[in-house]
Amino acid sequence: MADVVMYTRKMCGFCTAAKKLLGDKGVAFREFDATFDFDLKQEMIAKSGRRTFPQIFIDETHVGGCDDLFALDKQGKLDEMLAS
C-alpha cells in the first residue's frame, strides 16, 4: 500500500472530505495538522507550492488538494496510485 501524507488544518471541510474519501477506501494516512504550527505550514508550502489545505502526497508525489484527490478518483487513477 502507498505511503499517504496529508497536511490539514482544523475546521476545514475540504480536509474532512479528503480524509473521508481515503477512509472509505480503507487507506491509512499520516496527517500533519498545521493549524497552529507555522513551521509545518511552511514545510507544506515548500513541498507543494500551495498555501491551501489539504495538501496530499502519495509516495512522495504531490497529488494536490481535495478537488484533485476527488478528480483522480473519478478518473479511476486514485486506486492505482494507492496500490503502488
Rank of each mutant, 00 (worst) to 15 (best):
M1W: 01
M1L: 08
A2T: 11
A2I: 02
A2S: 15
D3F: 01
D3M: 07
V4R: 06
V5C: 02
V5P: 00
M6Q: 07
M6I: 15
Y7T: 04
R9K: 15
R9Y: 00
K10E: 14
K10N: 15
M11L: 02
M11V: 11
M11Y: 15
C12L: 12
G13D: 10
G13C: 11
F14P: 01
C15M: 02
C15V: 05
T16E: 09
T16S: 05
A17V: 05
A17N: 07
A18V: 04
A18H: 00
A18I: 01
K19F: 03
K19G: 01
K20A: 09
K20Y: 06
K20V: 07
K20F: 03
K20R: 15
L21C: 04
L21S: 05
L22C: 13
G23R: 05
G23V: 05
G23T: 07
D24K: 04
D24V: 01
K25H: 10
K25F: 09
G26C: 06
V27C: 04
A28V: 11
A28P: 00
F29G: 03
F29K: 11
F29R: 08
R30L: 11
E31W: 02
F32C: 05
F32Q: 02
A34C: 03
T35W: 09
F36G: 11
F36A: 14
F36W: 10
F38T: 06
F38D: 13
L40R: 13
L40F: 02
K41T: 03
Q42A: 10
Q42M: 14
Q42I: 01
E43V: 03
M44R: 03
I45R: 02
I45V: 15
A46V: 09
A46G: 11
K47M: 14
S48P: 00
S48Y: 09
G49F: 07
R51H: 05
R51K: 13
T52W: 14
P54A: 01
P54G: 01
P54M: 01
Q55S: 07
Q55F: 00
I56Q: 03
I56S: 08
I56G: 04
F57C: 06
F57L: 08
I58Y: 06
I58A: 02
D59I: 06
D59K: 03
E60R: 15
E60D: 14
T61P: 00
T61K: 11
T61R: 10
T61F: 02
H62P: 06
V63A: 10
V63L: 06
G64M: 09
G65T: 05
G65W: 07
G65I: 07
G65Q: 10
C66K: 00
C66F: 00
D67S: 13
D67K: 11
D68S: 12
L69T: 10
L69Q: 06
L69P: 12
F70C: 07
A71C: 08
A71W: 00
D73L: 14
D73G: 07
D73T: 01
D73S: 06
K74I: 08
K74E: 15
K74F: 05
Q75S: 08
Q75P: 14
Q75N: 10
Q75K: 10
K77D: 10
K77Q: 13
L78P: 01
L78K: 04
D79I: 08
E80P: 00
E80M: 10
E80L: 13
E80T: 14
E80K: 12
M81R: 02
L82F: 11
A83R: 10
A83K: 14
S84Y: 09
